[in-house]
Structures are given as C-alpha cells and as structure tokens.
Design a protein around this nucleic acid. Structure first.
Lengths: 365, 365
DNA sequence: GGATTTTGTTTGATCGTTCAAATTCTTGGT
DNA sequence: ACCAAGAATTTGAACGATCAAACAAAATCC
C-alpha cells in the first residue's frame, strides 16, 4: 500500500478520464448511468477519497466554518454554548461542512484571527456567539464582506425589519412567558422574577415576558411587578440571596421564575432552607444541572438554532455560501421559540415530606 | 482590491524569486538579513498571507488536529471535556495548529470519520477522549499507523512500562488521596467514599487513593473500608441516595469523598436535609457547579493535559508530527497530578448568618 | 590565485483537484 | 443518408504553494 489513490488512478481503473471521475462526484446528473456505475465501482474498490486540500485550492472554498471558543467559562450556563457547538457540529456534518475552532484574546485578537483564517482560505464563514452592542467583530466582517451569522440578535438595531446582518436567536419573551404561565397553571398567584442586572436584549426580553404574563393573567400592575422582581449578576449565590429577599417580603411570591439555572438553583436552595421547599422555581437554559436536581427550565432548541444558522449561510441545502439579499419572503434572521421542560424536583421534593426543614449549619475550618 | 496577493506578487514587489519568499517564511535562517527585511517589507505592504490549502497540498500536512465532539451530554461532568477542548484549542493556537471538530455515531462511525479525515489530508493527528477498554478506535489508528494521543490511559495494558500508544492522564489515585487527606485534616475520623460502579481504571484508581489514605492515617481495615464506601452510577440522585445510606449507618462517616461533583452535589443535599449540613463533602473534577455551590473538589490540570498531549504528538515545540520511539528518558505518556481546590460551602454557610439582605439592586423601570 | 567548499538564490516540476474549451459520440429531423 | 444540435467525455491549464536540483556568489583552503 503505497500512495493514496487519486482521480488519475480511479480514471485508469474505470477506463475513463480524470474529469469524468470528478463529474461523478460533483455533477452526477451529466454523466451517463452506465459509466457512472463503472466509475463508482472503481472508487469503491480503490477506496478513493478526494484530497480535501487540493479541492479547496482549486475551488477556493474550504467547506469549513470558523467558530471562536470563548475563553471564559461562563459558569453553569457556559455549557449552553458548548451544547450549541455540539449541535452545530452535527448539523454541519450533514452538509459535509466542518467546524474549525480558534481562540483569541479580546475582540481585536478575534478580528486578527478572522483576517488570518479568511486570507488563508481556511474557512468560508464564521458563526459568532455572545455578541455585544456595537460589536467591532460584526462591523469588521460586514466591512470586509465576509459571510457570517450570529447566535444572538444585534442589539439596539431594528433587528427584524432591516437587520444589518443575519442572526438567529431564541425568543426570550416567549420563554419567560411560558415559565410564568406554567407557574400560574400550578396555582401561583404571585410569580416573582429574578433576572440579570445588565441591559442586554436577553435580560430585557425575559423580564418583559414574565411581566406581560403576570400583568395579563394575574392582574399585577407595574409597581407590584417591580416589587416582585430583582435584577442581579448571574450566579448561584446571587440567586440564593435574591430569593431570600423576595421570600422575606410582607407578601412574598408563591413561585419564582429565574433568568438562568444558576439563579434558579440558588433560589431553590434558599426556598428549601426556609421551609418553602414546595415553592415552584423555574430556571432557564435547561442545563444538565437543572436535569440533575429536577428543576423545571426553559429549553432553547439548539439543534434548530444550529440548523437555522447554516440555512442562513448556505441555503436550505448544500455547502455553498449564498449571498443573501434581504427579502420579505425569506428574511435574514430566524427567531425560534423555546419550550418549557417541566420537572418535579426529585431532590428537594423530599424536603417537605421529610418533616422539619433543616437549619443548615456551620462548616468549620 | 482584486485578488489576494500570492508569493509571486510578493516576489515581484521585493525583487526576488518565489522560493526566496517561501524561505523567509519557512526557513528564515538560510536567507540573508538584507533580503530578509526587503521581503518582509513587501509582505507587510501587500498584506500577504500564505494560502493554507495550497501549502497543505504541497507539504501533505494540515497543521490541524481532529477531535471528536462527544454526542452525549455527560451531565454535569460532561463539561470537563468541554473545558479540555478549550485548553487544547488554546495550546494548539500557540503552535499554529488548529482544531477540527467532528461527530460520529458510535465507534464505527468514528472510525469512518478517521478514515475520511485522514484520506482527505484534513488532519495530521487525532486526540481521543473517553477511551474504553479494548477500544476499536485506538486499534484502527495503530493499525493504520496514524498519529494520535488519548486523554485517559489505555486500561488493562501495562500502560507505564510499555504503553501501546501515547496517552495523557491525571492521577486519580493522588486526587482521591488528597481529597481524603483534606477531610482528615479537617478533623474527620471516618471518611466515606461514593464512587463509580463501573470497572474503569478511573473508578478503581480513585477508590484506591481514598482507601490507601484511610488505611494509613485512620487505621481502617478492608472490611471497614467496604462498609464506608459505595459504588453507584454517576448522577445527583444516586449521590443523594448513597449519602443517605452511608449517613444512616450505625457508625456513619463524618466526611464524604465523591468520585464526581454530581455525586457530591447529591451528597451535599442529602447531608443538609438530615441536619448534617456541617458534613465535609468533597467532589471531583472541579466543575462550575462545584464553584457555584462552594464545594471542595479535585481539579484536573487541563491546560497541562492539553500541553502534554501536544508534546507527545509534536515534540516540545513546532507543529510537525514526531514519530516517537519509546525510550526510558522520554516516555510515551504523561501522568499528571491533580490539585484539591478547597472551598467553604457558601450557600449553606450563609444560612446561619441568615440576616444579610440582598446584594443585587432593584430593577427599575 | 585558482580550486573547493559554503552560502544564498533561482528555476522547473509537482501536489490532486476542478475549470474551460475542445473533442467525440448520440440523437433526431428533413 | 446527411447534417445540426445536444449530450457525454476528454484534454490542457490553472489554483498557490513547496521540493529538488541547478545555478550564482561569497567565503575558505593550500
């Protein structure tokens, strides 16, 4: 077994020319059925596979998508992006696309990498995650007219009517609304909300979803809603503290909707501790932790997000970049709807049944 | 701005030949300082970057490492592999290597992908994770003489004296030992252990580390150790149940070492519920969850794992595969030592101080 | 100083594929 | 039967880089 077989070898074995072999692979419709089978047999027998780099050199496309691996571990919810990466890799495989990872220090470093990967013809497009307002990365890519999609809508702009670039996102309004609705269906009359302190679209949307549902079905006004909600930094301790605060109010909430599973986990623990283990707590992102502790959570359809992202770049099938003109029938974005995964808290449910709530205790040292 | 510049363009601009430009990039030491600067200036001015695919075609190397993205989300601990992926990507970037992801259904599908990526010259080597006993993947790669490293030692074989392939692993014995030692230092006299039910090297090692430390410093014999330990499937509910069992014994343990953070989280909750919130519980893998709930945990040095993996493939520097001959001075494996991250359970500790209000601000609007 | 090595640079060939144009084979109409 | 038009296939060139060998220039030797 010396060299790997090339088109030349296959051609000789099948008694045809190079180009016909190439046609069998790339333009099957123009080759006669007869020779088709003959060539295919030769390919199978020799175990031929096209040399990816040679093809890329000639066609000037890499069939590869660049994705930056975010250096910061975003705590529990960080796994969301990892799950997205999984989904993207799988969806990409179905189109014979590959995912190439890279890292970079800050936005400037990332733009450097963009430039390097573009000039080296390493990737055909980028998928960006965790974009921010006025992101310099999207600006650079737009300026250099290089294909990309973002997971997360461009904040601030008119992202629906006239999006400045393709994006995919999951409707946070709907997610929070569903969570709230579920709490109400479970008998809650006052649903509290623990959200993010930042001004991101995500943060605003989710709170708005909770507020709208609460206003419509529980008849709460703005002031009451403000009293029932808190905006904090994401994290378990923060969720814990926030829940303790809300539950300590004169008229405390009888359910809690949280903007992340981290916050929800903290809230869950707080509730259990002060003897309110029965309290409905709903998280967001449906992370493994939520599944592990039996926490209801809003699930983002990451498979669909990945699929939609590829559709925006490559069309409904194939692996060739489509230059997209924004049209009414075929918008430049996809807004997907999340679903609520309802769970019964296996862990903490036992707390209430096992009698007295625990006064947890000091750890020495 | 028409075409991207090529070596030809740079050569013309600098008044030299193609090859000299190539030498400046690949063999800087053989080119005269004078022309060197001239060529470099031309490169900078034209913004030239080598075309990766063309180079790959000629050199028959891709400077790319293939990594399979495991389809199953391994619960809380699954993020360990994601963190490894981050580390690997960063380490690879320092050597101008890239990571290419792929997915596959089962070992056979993965071998298919190996074959495809190898034949297409897409990757120079593979990094394998979560290998199993008699793994067909390593067998295939060895048979086809394709470079690879595994994260995780080949179980069963004489992995140290005469390893059948390069591997990197983290010493589970030491990790469990450190965890146990830490518990003893905290005053524990009977340290319980909740481990994995499978027969993997990992499972055996970690238990052995705990057992050795307990035997040496607490004077426990085999029977006592058996009574203090339990082997279960990984997961929060399992950890919970196991902890309840152990803590319900006539002479219960006064600390628990667990083989994963999932188990530890379950154990922690169980302890808190039955009024033993002060119980020392130690997890494994130092996942975000552990950090979030303030759980001491054994941290695997994933940066070092990644770095070592690349060293085994490419030597101490550079991006060219080295065919390695096993020698005593330069072993074919790396066994790394984990470290214990000691934490005080922030969540449960805060209960006792109980009063302190919320850190977050109210949401205005 | 001339022969010999060392060092630096250039030229043709090549990697494996697809494109573009040229060629041969089919088909069908009159 | 003939010729035009289409279908199927073949041939030369090109993608952008590096390799190998040839060449020119400078440094070393006796």
């Amino acid at each position: 077994m010396g060299q790997l077989p090339t088109v030349e070898d296959v051609a000789r074995a099948a008694g045809v020319s190079r180009q016909t072999v190439s046609n069998v692979l790339n333009s099957p419709q123009i080759v006669k059925p007869d020779t088709m089978t003959r060539v295919k047999a030769a390919i199978a027998e020799l175990g031929y596979r096209p040399h990816a780099s040679a093809r890329r050199l000639r066609t000037r496309k890499s069939s590869t998508i660049g994705v930056r691996l975010d250096p910061m571990t975003n705590g529990i919810s960080g796994s969301l992006l990892d799950r997205f990466l999984h989904a993207l890799t799988e969806q990409a495989a179905e189109r014979d696309l590959r995912i190439m990872l890279f890292t970079a220090q800050g936005p400037d470093g990332e733009i450097d990498e963009f430039s390097r990967l573009r000039d080296g013809a390493d990737v055909d497009a980028f998928v960006l995650t965790s974009t921010v307002h006025d992101d310099p990365r999207t600006a650079w890519l737009l300026e250099h007219d290089f294909p990309f999609v973002t997971f997360g809508r461009p904040s601030g702009a008119d992202d629906r009517g006239d999006p400045i670039h393709p994006w995919v996102d999951v409707d946070g309004f709907s997610g929070a609304q569903q969570a709230t609705s579920h709490a109400i269906a479970g008998g809650a009359r006052r649903v509290g909300y623990i959200g993010f302190a930042d001004e991101s679209t995500t943060a605003l949307e989710r709170r708005a979803g909770w507020a709208a549902e609460s206003a419509q079905h529980l008849g709460l006004d703005g002031a009451e809603l403000d009293a029932l909600s808190l905006a904090v930094v994401d994290g378990v301790p923060q969720g814990n503290a926030a829940a303790l605060h809300l539950l300590g109010l004169p008229t405390p909430p009888d359910a809690l909707v949280c903007a992340s599973d981290s916050l929800a986990l903290g809230a869950m623990m707080a509730a259990a501790r002060i003897g309110r283990g029965e309290l409905t707590v709903i998280g967001y992102d449906n992370t493994p932790v939520a599944a592990a502790v039996g926490l209801s959570s809003v699930d983002q359809p990451l498979d669909l997000v990945a699929q939609s992202a590829l559709e925006l770049l490559f069309g409904t099938s194939g692996s060739t970049i489509v230059s997209r003109i924004h049209s009414a029938t075929d918008p430049l974005y996809r807004l997907l709807t999340p679903t609520l995964v309802a769970r019964t808290p296996t862990q903490l449910a036992r707390v209430e049944t096992s009698g007295s709530p625990v006064a947890g205790n000091h750890n020495e040292r």
